[in-house]
Design a protein around this nucleic acid. Structure first.
Lengths: 117, 117
DNA sequence: GTGTCATTTCGATAATATTCGAATTATGGA
DNA sequence: TCCATAATTCGAATATTATCGAAATGACAC
């Protein structure tokens, strides 16, 4: 990932409304939510939600898929993954600079409180 | 960390110049770099560098400390750590959604290519 | 103090983004 | 076909942010 791509993703996430949407979809998991449910959940006018969904979609952080009359949006986890790797690559000269991230589960096995590892 | 705080950090990083500065400091490690070295390394006018350093500093992603006539800026790793945790908390309903992040070393022991873990 | 260098602040311009009601398009059911 | 609903696009006002030369500030040496 290049600087420009990463900055584009970060800038897309750097807005209350869009970050709220993205977090909602991250928690919703692969099944996602439709546009109306998102705009309801966040008490946001549909036009505003659509504007931000389009933005997130354009940069690849989420994707939408139509099912009947609804469009289901879901987070693109691999793009978030790549972004985090970009942010932390070659970090901190080998020190243990990200203890919380390390303790946080990203593989399905819970290890919230590290005891020694 | 609240949505607003996270959005503020992401927005600060969502700009080519600031992301370049931040990445430079992340790779530089705790020792950091002074303002002039940063503006040189990125071929950026000093006034522009200063503008962006002030922004990053204001939101807490970096900090500056004066030493003699120089101001050494360094990345605030714990704030980056908290940001990543915020982005990924309660993610993906227990699926292994962030394989690259999981494989990436953040604790000092190299484990770049996972073989089974 | 005076000079020098590192850095920031000022300031005016320019560019970009956000908001969201109203109108429009898309889909499917009766 | 006609209606209802889901979602987007339009559009125009509003707000925010970036750029960077020039001037000012801060720190130190002599």
């Amino acid at each position: 990932m290049e600087i420009k791509d990463a900055a584009q993703l970060l800038s897309a996430l750097g807005h209350d409304a869009r970050l709220s949407i993205f977090r909602l979809l991250v928690e919703a998991g692969p099944a996602g939510l439709n546009a109306g449910a998102i705009s309801d959940a966040l008490a946001m006018p549909p036009a505003s939600a659509s504007f931000h969904l389009a933005h997130l979609s354009r940069v690849g952080l989420i994707q939408g898929q139509r099912a009947h009359r609804f469009i289901h949006y879901s987070a693109n986890f691999s793009s978030m993954d790549a972004l985090i790797v970009f942010l932390t690559r070659n970090c901190c000269q080998g020190e243990a600079c990200l203890p919380l991230t390390a303790a946080c589960d990203t593989r399905g096995t819970r290890r919230v409180h590290m005891t020694g590892d």
